[in-house]
């Protein structure tokens, strides 16, 4: 399960429409959408938002992956809905609020998913450079990502080597298994440290931070479609701020709530009495 969730946030090298947008545009998209998701507390606007974002998943060409991830987190979403529906007080309809929470979670998962699916680690680090973060931070992000395959390969070798010497990794209870991991962790850490030391030497020898400023062979450039989208997103953000300050009442159809008899609590009570009746007979 955990690997499936990790996979969901893993960059997919594809040439979809969404991939062609600048990471800064996508960053603003994530910020604006997060703002709106937090702004709305009612079910209908959140459902509309969800319906609006889902096509973007299709455009980013990772619908299958998204579906798989959603199925994986479904129990969690259900838990959010049920707990909210049963435990929330001081709201007219706890079930509606619970469902709204569930949709909030789904929207956020979608939005962040789109970002990480379509922004490569390199673009991410270049974005940090454009935002005037220190270059070392940006470099660390892209290098960490680049070393994942190397370290995975090495870990596999270490595991195989220790197994060949009789280490039993998947035997015994959880504590024993954790204890069995120690002979793996020590060489893995040692080699990672050695690697990072050697890399530090190598980049130092090639003039790391030799000048205060540095230049770049490639850097990000906003295209016309980015400007257009940014304009739209800034407009949406302005609307968000306006709503936060002025607190306009939402139209009544947006405030729709589940009828009393479909509340989870009343459904549960009805179910309980039905069961009781069944056994009394």
């Amino acid at each position: 399960m955990s690997t499936r969730i990790l996979e969901y946030f893993n960059y997919e090298q594809d040439k979809s429409l969404i991939h062609r947008f600048d990471p800064r545009t996508k960053m603003l998209f994530v910020i604006v959408l997060t703002c709106y998701t937090i702004l709305f507390r009612d079910l209908v606007p959140l459902m509309l938002l969800f319906a609006g974002v889902t096509p973007l998943v299709l455009l980013a060409k990772f619908f299958k992956k998204w579906l798989r991830a959603m199925i994986t987190v479904l129990p969690l979403v259900l838990l959010i809905i049920i707990l909210n529906a049963l435990l929330l007080k001081n709201v007219p309809s706890p079930t509606t609020a619970g469902l709204a929470m569930g949709f909030r979670f789904l929207i956020l998962a979608e939005v962040f998913g789109i970002f990480f699916q379509t922004v490569s680690p390199d673009e991410l680090s270049q974005m940090f450079i454009k935002f005037r973060f220190p270059y070392s931070l940006a470099w660390a992000i892209s290098t960490a990502y680049r070393f994942i395959p190397t370290l995975t390969k090495e870990t596999a070798i270490i595991v195989a080597a220790q197994k060949a010497r009789g280490l039993q990794i998947d035997r015994g209870n959880i504590f024993k298994r954790l204890k069995n991991m120690i002979p793996l962790l020590i060489p893995i850490f040692a080699s990672a440290f050695r690697r990072s030391w050697q890399l530090a030497e190598a980049i130092e020898s090639r003039g790391w931070n030799a000048m205060k400023k540095r230049t770049f062979l490639y850097s990000l450039r906003l295209k016309w479609w980015d400007y257009l989208t940014l304009l739209l997103l800034f407009g949406l953000f302005a609307l968000f701020l306006l709503q936060v300050i002025k607190q306009y009442p939402l139209p009544s159809w947006m405030l729709w709530q589940l009828p009393e008899k479909y509340e989870l609590k009343s459904l549960a009570i009805a179910f309980w009495s039905w069961l009781k009746n069944l056994f009394q007979k």
């Binding site: 090639r206 003039g207 000048m211 540095r214 230049t215």
Partner: peptide, 9 residues
């Protein structure tokens, strides 16, 4: 290394 020494693009 060229980027490190701020050489023009």
């Amino acid at each position: 290394p060229l980027e490190n020494f701020a050489i023009p693009r």
